[in-house]
């Protein structure tokens, strides 16, 4: 019998960088069902906002899921303030469609910033399916690079790029990808990161006709296909990221529109965030 007892207890917390926090949460039902690519919607308290976060890892025997989040606004900041033993009032999932995993050949995984978190389970499963996996990780600076070791553990090769050259090679993620594409045949590229990054990574792979999948992080409300807040245009058609995605054929995505829609509540959000930071 499913019981509505106290759920979603935080059992472990790790600070990965100034901006990025990893939380392990008790959610046995979600842990059991989730596959790479799935996400949850999280809400803190009665007055909280619903925000989507990818399930980065799951441990069925412990009944936990791991979320990795970057502090960008009020809700992500509040979540990052929670500690081991605290409860998150609402966690629902697993939502979205799981990643299509099969043996493709060489898979190039390009992750930027906090996008490395949702990329990790895909890297793991692509590897387990027998692919040669090459991961290109990018961050603004060394301190913001997350999950490097976990990615190394399941990749055949890892290339690290930083904007300021403080670690790995100095340069943009596309340079690291170029290097791989120039030397070997890539069967599939998976890219997750800020929308602007995904726009450029998919422009690059399009040039070389490499099939590419991007996982989108649009604004969401319900996450069940009810509101349309997450809609984007793919191949000229309107799609809902929460139920049709979050992964789509990157070469068909209208990234300009997506970038514009992501900025929709910028004024309202940054005002709220400033007010919140004043308070804490």
């Amino acid at each position: 019998m499913y019981k509505r007892n106290k759920m979603n207890k935080i059992v472990a917390k790790e600070i990965l960088s100034d901006l990025v926090v990893k939380l392990e949460i008790e959610a046995p039902l979600i842990a059991k069902k989730r596959k790479a690519g799935h996400f949850v919607i999280v809400k803190i308290g009665e007055k909280g906002e619903r925000i989507p976060l990818t399930i980065s890892q799951a441990d069925i025997s412990k009944g936990t899921i791991t979320l990795i989040l970057q502090k960008v606004g009020v809700t992500s900041h509040k979540l990052a303030q929670l500690n081991v033993g605290d409860y998150i009032s609402d966690v629902v999932g697993p939502l979205g469609k799981a990643t299509h995993i099969e043996k493709f050949g060489t898979v190039l995984c390009a992750g930027g910033g906090v996008g490395i978190a949702p990329l990790l389970p895909i890297i793991q499963e692509m590897k387990a399916a027998g692919n040669r996996v090459i991961s290109v990780l990018a961050a603004r600076t060394k301190e913001l690079l997350i999950l490097e070791q976990e990615v190394r553990d399941c990749s055949d090769e890892v290339i690290v790029m930083t904007d300021d050259g403080s670690y790995g090679t100095k340069g943009l993620i596309t340079q690291g990808m170029d290097e791989v594409i120039a030397r070997e045949k890539v069967a599939l590229c998976v890219t997750i990161g800020p929308a602007i990054m995904m726009k450029f990574t998919s422009m690059l792979t399009k040039k070389y006709n490499i099939p590419t999948v991007a996982s989108l992080n649009t604004i969401m409300v319900d996450g069940t296909g009810m509101c349309g807040a997450c809609r984007i245009t793919v191949g000229g058609q309107t799609k809902f990221v929460c139920v049709d995605g979050p992964e789509f054929d990157a070469h068909q995505i209208d990234f300009e529109e997506m970038l514009m829609r992501l900025g929709a509540y910028k004024t309202e959000e940054s005002e709220a965030y400033q007010a919140y930071l004043q308070k804490v």
Binding site: I30, V92, G93, P94
Partner: peptide
């Protein structure tokens, strides 16, 4: 009646 919220039948179970 027992109510269970945050539970998507078809996904959560």
């Amino acid at each position: 009646v027992e109510f269970i919220t945050n539970f998507v039948v078809g996904s959560t179970a």
